[in-house]
Design a protein around this nucleic acid. Structure first.
Lengths: 216, 216
DNA sequence: AACATCGTGGAGGTCAAGATCGGCGTGCAG
DNA sequence: CTGCACGCCGATCTTGACCTCCACGATGTT
């Protein structure tokens, strides 16, 4: 009994049935999906190209016929995920003119992002390839871009200096991403919207007093 | 002769003079210092044991006579850094009974931690070995432990439920660590204490308004 | 002063993982 | 029926990094 039974190779993952033939374009998206699952579950370094190929139900050469290397595959997925969160953040900020609603909407964007089934946020917030400059640049860009958009609002409405606005905005983004990640790890003790509302309230109380309030 | 001149370690090319002989205990701490520099500069995976040995001015076998393997070496440094930030956080919270001062003191702890010359915070906040459960557990413990201590204060003073207190505390920790990291990356446009005060003000305005505020 | 001891150094083994080359089966035009 | 093209797979190569074996020199003792 060398093979044949579709048993789990290593973990609780079930590889796809082997032998199906499909056009290139379709195969490519399937490979991307499989790669995302493996990278999310194991991280970049622990993920082997064999694992991704097995997960997709194909052999390794097929994978290399679609992507030149492991890093390219990872960067493709990373770019998609980075663009998603940045675009959603932009839309949330543009969705209203009330700053309190802006805070809530942006917070919900982060919580939805983290709660999404695919878990792609791990590539961005928990990447284990930060030594690679291409990865570092993209990961940092998520925080800096989101923060920059928020900082524009802060600066416009408060008149604070650029550096202070940026730092405040970065801290709001940090609050959102870290709390969302640990909310998810907590296992759903609190409903997603309740958690987002709670933290949005914290953030809003923090920044709403800034234009006119002096310290103490 | 064994001059401990730890000058700027920007890129890691700074091998020590070779040939110096020293007692075990001293050699061990020197190896730890060298390993920290290399891990901080290059990350876990990119760092080779040869690099660490060369950095310390010794050869590879002596490194293995002091530490059984690469992971143990990394975990030793990680533990030290994790304990440091957790203990400092605890002391900051115990240093006063005024919650506003608690927030400021805790924020300054994070900024000092990130600004410390050795850059050990990168092992905790930017580790590239999160796939290893031992590492993941320690890294997460920093946030959860710090948050737990803060959550105790929040729960006591506000009467909020446990889960809400924990989530608020986690978000404050996230705000601190992310903003501190990006403040450092910003290159010192703002003075360290000013940045910490700014974010502490944001955090305090956020949480001070919650139910049952005990103002003296 | 000579010898034994111990720490040090360079060169090498092992193995995992990324990247690749000749064969196989299927569908279609002629 | 037959040749062709295309997609796919088993088996292999190579690189790089972690981890040990034989010489050498310094130190303490008689």
């Amino acid at each position: 009994m060398t093979a044949g039974s579709t048993d789990t190779t290593s973990d609780g993952v079930n590889p796809r049935p082997r032998g199906g033939r499909m056009p290139r374009r379709e195969r490519r998206v399937q490979l991307l999906e499989s790669a995302l699952e493996v990278f999310v579950a194991q991280g970049y370094h622990a993920a082997a190209m064999d694992d991704i190929a097995d997960r997709a139900g194909v052999s390794k050469p097929v994978l290399y016929q679609h992507f030149p290397g492991k890093l390219d595959l990872y960067l493709a997925l990373l770019d998609t995920s980075c663009d998603l969160i940045i675009d959603n953040c932009r839309e949330a900020l543009a969705s209203t003119n009330d700053n309190r609603d802006r805070v809530t909407a942006t917070m919900k964007v982060f919580y939805s992002y983290v709660a999404s089934e695919e878990g792609a946020f791990r590539l961005v917030f928990e990447s284990d390839l930060t030594s690679e400059p291409d990865v570092r640049e993209r990961v940092d860009r998520v925080t800096t871009e989101c923060a920059s958009m928020i900082a524009d609002v802060i600066r416009t409405d408060t008149g604070l200096p650029d550096e202070a606005s940026e730092l405040l905005a970065v801290s709001l983004v940090g609050m959102a991403q870290v709390s969302a990640r640990f909310w998810l790890a907590g296992g759903g003790q609190i409903a997603q919207d309740d958690a987002a509302d709670l933290i949005a309230g914290l953030a809003w109380r923090g920044i709403r007093g800034y234009p006119m309030t002096d310290d103490h």
